[in-house]
């Protein structure tokens, strides 16, 4: 059920990116889709009563960094977290790129409306 709600969020973003005709609204739709994908990936690795994947002192048993089975059996998945961590920072870079395209278009045509831009182009 949380997966379905997450997918609903993705569909809202898709609707915004496809139907709206303001350029900033399209950027907002793409951002909403990014949030939905990040949330979905993190949810895939969650388990009930799980621990954050950070080792503290009482988790280490034995020499050579042997971890306790309690930690191994209750830690959440660290792999999606690592992927999402890079994805969030990349989304900020792509947001800056999209926004600079919007600013350039506004300076050229004086509007954010993509149908107007198409008409002005001829």
């Amino acid at each position: 059920m949380p997966y379905a709600l997450c997918f609903l969020l993705f569909v809202i973003g898709l609707y915004c990116a496809v139907v709206k005709k303001n350029m900033v609204k399209i950027v907002i739709g793409i951002m909403v889709m990014e949030y939905a994908v990040n949330l979905f990936l993190i949810m895939l690795g969650y388990r009930f009563g799980g621990k954050a994947p950070i080792v503290v002192e009482e988790d280490i048993v034995g020499a050579g960094g042997q971890l306790s089975s309690l930690f191994i059996n209750s830690s959440v998945d660290p792999l999606p977290q690592a992927l999402v961590l890079t994805a969030i920072v990349i989304s900020l870079g792509s947001l800056a790129l999209m926004i600079s395209i919007c600013i350039r278009t506004y300076e050229r045509y004086g509007t954010f409306d993509i149908t107007e831009i198409r008409r002005l182009k001829g």
Binding site: G93, I99, S100, E107
Partner: peptide, 23 residues
């Protein structure tokens, strides 16, 4: 790397403002 590149983006975005108002 992350700190300076994000700082560069916002600096470039804010540099663009006076040209816009002049236009």
């Amino acid at each position: 790397k992350v700190a300076t590149s994000l700082f560069l983006v916002i600096l470039v975005l804010s540099m663009f403002r006076p040209d816009m108002s002049g236009d």
